[in-house]
């Protein structure tokens, strides 16, 4: 493991995880414990401003985020972990922009000084929890913790936007795969999910039903087409939109989606043999129990390879190399 020397991180839960996405908070903390790293909640952290403050006034928006970075640095932590993609991108972007733009850096620090704080860009490394699990803990250590593999559970890994964009560097900006691999390590069957990095609509549910519900419908439709039992997400906004608005999508479009939306940490906890309640299964509005009941003790039987029809026209081989 290549975490901090003591295997600990400052933990920035963000507002969603205190209530609406409490399931994500609970499950993040228990899988961290199971994997042997520490999440130390940042003292007196404040809201990151979501996408709202940047729309009103950019300088206070950066200053709002920078207070959290300054507090992290003053606690002596070198890395801060955010499970919420929006918090993550705001923290990441503020640190990066303060480093890239001297004028912004100067003004943000002048604002911080009014609160007797200061922050030097680069002093805190901002990480998403998925990044920590995949790159610091690593797939081998995750595999070693699996006690109840999720055989036959078909999952669609949904990354959404902000974990990969703007360029945060730990996975592909358009077709990320780290969570796919993580789900395979847990024993689940990963379905292809072409819309895996498309937008869930963000706050558009509050502004335009026309825009938001169509974006949500597309995602649910795509995962359903590929016969997923559940969508697995890394962001509370994505979870809320796909879960809580699913009923409205069904009413508006005459669809019958019944797709449970789980956090990747909940799925990890289940694979680690934890009770569903320990990872807050049951907080989702679309019930996940029917999907979870599909998990079997035996791995899925691989379909037998068909013998090639020698009289058929020559076709390129579809078998993977290596």
């Amino acid at each position: 493991m290549t975490a901090n020397a003591n295997g600990s991180y400052a933990y920035y839960p963000g507002c969603s995880l205190t209530k609406n996405a409490a399931a994500y908070d609970v499950s993040s903390r228990v899988i961290a414990r199971a994997l042997g790293f520490e999440l130390n909640e940042l003292t007196d952290w404040n809201c990151c401003g979501a996408s709202e403050y940047f729309s009103l006034n950019q300088l206070p928006a950066y200053a709002l985020v920078a207070r959290n970075l300054a507090l992290t640095a003053s606690e002596g932590a070198k890395q801060v972990v955010a499970p919420c993609s929006l918090c993550y991108v705001n923290l990441y972007k503020t640190d990066k922009y303060m480093g890239d733009h001297a004028d912004l850096n100067e003004k943000v620090n002048a604002a911080l000084a009014a609160g007797k704080l200061a922050y030097r860009a680069g002093d805190v490394k901002v990480r998403h929890l998925l990044d920590v699990v995949v790159n610091d803990v690593g797939f081998d250590n995750v595999a070693a913790a699996v006690k109840k593999p999720l055989y036959n559970l078909r999952v669609a890994p949904y990354y959404g936007c902000l974990i990969v964009r703007p360029r945060t560097g730990f996975d592909d900006v358009e077709y990320p795969t780290t969570m796919d691999h993580l789900m395979e390590v847990l024993g689940a069957t990963v379905v292809d999910f072409p819309l895996k990095a498309e937008c869930c609509g963000g706050h558009m549910t509050q502004i335009s039903d026309d825009v938001a519900l169509e974006l949500i419908r597309r995602l649910l439709h795509n995962a359903t087409e590929y016969e997923a039992d559940a969508i697995v997400t890394v962001c509370p906004m994505c979870q809320l939109n796909l879960d809580a608005y699913q009923d409205q999508v069904n009413r508006r479009f005459g669809t019958r989606f019944k797709m449970p939306i789980l956090y990747f940490t909940q799925v990890m906890g289940l694979a680690f043999g934890m009770e569903p309640k320990a990872v807050a299964i049951g907080k989702e509005i679309v019930d996940a129990r029917p999907a979870l009941a599909k998990v079997t003790a035996e791995p899925p039987v691989q379909p037998k390879k068909k013998r090639r029809d020698k009289s058929a026209l020559p076709m390129p081989s579809t078998e993977r190399e290596g």
């Binding site: 950019q58 002048a110 009014a114």
Partner: peptide
């Protein structure tokens, strides 16, 4: 926090 935000608004 409010002192920081007020200062930022002033600068902005």
């Amino acid at each position: 926090l409010q002192a920081i935000l007020n200062k930022a608004k002033q600068l902005s």
